[in-house]
Design a protein around this nucleic acid. Structure first.
Lengths: 192, 192
DNA sequence: ATTATTTTAGAATGATTGTTCCAAAAATGC
DNA sequence: GCATTTTTGGAACAATCATTCTAAAATAAT
């Protein structure tokens, strides 16, 4: 029999993900990937396919794991509105902690208008995220935690849309406190 | 004497701007620029400098002209809060009308973290935009158009931050009506 | 130890990257 | 018409791009 793989595909994918996240798709070269993944060209092509396919796998891995992170946050919360608050604070904190902007949003602005496969992944992720928030907001309204007059779907859009604003502000001002302040303001706006 | 320039530098810069706007900085090649500007390589380098310098001029031209557009909107308005409303609707409409996302925000996500010159232009532009809104909101509060309890600076940040959300949503869902609905929701939130 | 299969490193590929250079054409003022 | 200066098209450049290929090293089961 033949020899077995000498590396952990998922572990190396993680490294590629970080690189794409940092530099973006176009600005990342195959040589960059070879260097930071610590794999030779052949192994990359053999395991993940070409650059585009590798990027899709990285992006999918990113959106999946951040979605799981949000769901974990929901599970840990004591009430629907508390969960919404936690998610909003988490969105703000993630950027500060990671020192980077959400890879999904970065990819949206770089590729969504020209790459249909990337677009599909991002659309699905955004839609899932909105659905989770909409559901929580509905429950929060039923529980009397927030005003029932406003449409939960619109509110959910509003929240997700604001996350993107957090990330832009972090890129422009590099000020974590400002982003957290924005998060608190958003929470207040929802509660009204 | 020598012959005069056979082209209008500003007109050709406009073409370059559209291309960078559409494709982003990294994904635009010098050959693309030669083709769509209708200028030969030499003339481009001679008139605008290298690719990076050309991009900076395009970006500066974009941010300047959109800022002027917003200021015109303010001048046309009958009251401070009406001006804020107009600006918000205009931000949403621009995307739908142009079928594209704000070049400033696109560039922020592509380059702000790696290109200091680009970052400086974008930071200045964002800061100017926030200042205009903050000033309008202060006046609106004094005129009793909106509640005076909330900090105008925070509100201004909130508005600009939401614009980025509009543009992300337009990229993800390609739905102009949705974006306009978001704009109306934002206006309501400000008025409360 | 032998055989079979895969990893590995890096050479080779041809296309494209940004940039510079050159000779010829064009247009201006004399 | 002549001299001067720039535009112009495209050749030339070295570097880098994504991708493929090759041959040797490594590992597994027999």
């Amino acid at each position: 029999m033949a020899r077995t793989k000498a590396f952990e595909p998922e572990e190396k994918l993680e490294k590629a993900k970080c690189l794409f996240w940092q530099k973006g798709y176009s600005a990342t070269s195959m040589q960059d990937l070879v260097d930071t993944m610590g794999l030779n060209r052949g192994s990359i092509y053999d395991t993940y396919g070409d650059k585009h396919s590798l990027f899709l796998q990285c992006l999918r891995s990113y959106t999946d794991s951040t979605f799981e992170d949000y769901q974990r946050t929901v599970a840990e919360s004591k009430s629907p509105m508390k969960a919404v608050e936690k998610i909003i604070r988490r969105a703000a904190l993630r950027t500060v902690a990671e020192g980077q902007t959400c890879m999904g949003v970065k990819s949206t602005f770089e590729l969504a208008s020209v790459d249909e496969e990337v677009h599909a992944i991002l659309k699905e992720n955004t839609t899932k995220m909105i659905a989770v928030l909409k559901d929580l907001l509905k429950k929060a309204q039923k529980a009397g935690e927030i005003n029932s007059k406003r449409d939960p779907g619109t509110l959910a859009n509003f929240i997700v849309s604001n996350f993107t604003g957090f990330w832009q502000f972090y890129l422009v001002y590099g000020d974590g406190e400002l982003v957290q302040q924005q998060a608190e303001f958003l929470i207040k706006s929802i509660k009204k």
